[in-house]
Structures are given as C-alpha cells and as structure tokens.
Simulated scan of single mutants.
Amino acid sequence: MVNFIEKYFDVTPDPRSADWFLIGSLKQTCLIVACYAFFVKKLGPSLMKNRKPFELRTIIRIYNISQICINGYLVFKASPYILGRSIWTGRCFSVDESNPETERYTLWLSYTYCLVKILDLLDTVFFVLRKRYNQVSFLHFYHHLLLALLAPVVYHYNPNGHMGVMGYINSIVHTVMYFYYFLSNLSPNMKNSIWWKKYITLMQMGQFVFLTGFFLYPLINGEFCGYPFKFLYFALAQNFVFMILFSNFYIKTYVTKAKLKPN
C-alpha cells in the first residue's frame, strides 16, 4: 500500500513524524481499520447475537463530552492559522516549511486530528454493542472507515497545507454534532425536543460543498503551490461521493418520511 501511494501520488514521508504512532507507520493505521471492519461486520454481531444490548449511557456521555472538548480544542487552536491564511479565497495552501514554530504547531494539530478520527470509530462499536444495527448504514461505516484511514495517510506525507482545511471544517461540524449527541443522550424527551437535528445533516452537506470548491479552485487555476495535486483530485472525488451519500440520507430521513407521516 505504501509503495503504491508513494509511486502513484509522487510523495515521500515527512521525516518529522517518522516515529509517531499512526502517522509514522501506516501499518498501524491499516491494522486498526481492519480490526474495526472485522468487529463491525463479523465479530461484534456474532458476539451480541444471543446477548441483550448494553446500555452504555454513562460511557457514551463521557465519550460525547470528550469529542466536544477535543474537536472544540482543534477548532480554537487552528483558527488563527487557518483563518489567517485567507481560507475563504480558495487559494492553495502551501506546505509551510519556513517557520519551525508553525511547523511544529500544525504538525501537532494534524496528529491530534488523526487520533480523533480513530476515536470516531467507537461510534460504530457502540452501535454494535447496543444492537442498533439499523444505524450502521453504508454511509456511516464508509465515512468512518475512510476518514480513519485517509487522515493518517495524508498527514504521513503532508501534515499541513491544503488538506489541513478539511480537518478544520470537519472539526467544526463534529463539535456541533457531538453536542447534539450529548443532549439527545440525556433523556428520550430531550431527544424528541431537539428540532435542529436535520440541520446538522445540512451542515455536514455544506462542508462538502465548501470543500469541493476549495479543492477545485487550485486545480482549475493550475496553482498547486508545492502541494501534491493528486491528493486534491482524490479528495475532490471523495467529496462528490459524500455529497451524494449525505443527500440521499437527508432525502430519505427528512423529506420522504415527512411526506409519509399522516396529517
């Protein structure tokens, strides 16, 4: 896998993170993702077949609070760097190697984001242990698996630069999303009273619309600023896939079901 990536995308590993867990060796990431897929699709359902679902209410509350804090921290710390580089212009973000302090700063943020994407896999594990198999949709499984694999791969080669904006926007969305999860976990009545659930899905769709334009701009302009343009092509393709999947989910959940409800 590593040889294929380096040959096809014409990239080399960043030596600064060579000894870091997940980023330093992609074998670790691949092993974690493979174990996740095996547990979700085979082992987990088999173990839970003749067992009652676990409640896990307290564990999930702690998990949701942790996600809010970590994602919020990433947004807070990354904002001066991302917004200071005129994110809204769509211009290509080069890999900044001119300032050692900025390099260490962005490298640490990228590494933290990679760890969060691994932590996200617990969402699906909790669904399986609670026997909420209907929530382990293709969209959910594919989204979590791809980001857990993609983030360490990208930051293994380029820990800052253009793709860092993806992590920034994604962290904003996840801060809001896990805040909703925390509130809805407090009680069934609380869950039914939160009217803005569908807007989180719209927010997720909005991030893919924005990132599509953000990745497309330097490709149209031919302005790669030293960033591997094949990474941008791949990210652009995945954004289209997610836009389709999330749009399909929104239509089925909030449009079709609303029409089927009796007046």
Results as ranks from 00 to 15, higher is better:
H143M: 08
Y113N: 12
K131C: 06
G90V: 06
I87E: 07
Y105G: 00
S110T: 13
T102V: 14
L145R: 00
Y81D: 07
W108C: 01
G84N: 09
L119V: 13
V136T: 11
T106F: 04
R85Q: 15
S110L: 05
D120G: 02
H140S: 05
N134G: 12
D123R: 12
N99V: 08
T106H: 05
Q135H: 14
R104T: 05
T89P: 11
R130D: 09
W88M: 14
I82T: 10
Y111N: 12
C92Y: 04
C92K: 02
L119N: 08
T106P: 01
T124C: 07
E103L: 15
L115Q: 10
T112W: 08
V125F: 04
N99A: 04
F126Q: 05
C114L: 05
T89M: 11
V125N: 01
K131H: 04
S86F: 08
Y81S: 04
V116S: 10
Y113E: 06
Y133Q: 04
Y113P: 04
R104C: 00
K131I: 03
L145I: 02
V116T: 14
S98Q: 12
S98M: 02
S94Y: 14
Y113H: 13
L121M: 13
I82E: 05
E103D: 01
D96N: 15
E101D: 11
T89G: 10
S110E: 03
S86L: 10
T106C: 12
L139I: 02
H143F: 10
D123S: 06
N99R: 03
L115T: 08
L115H: 05
C92V: 10
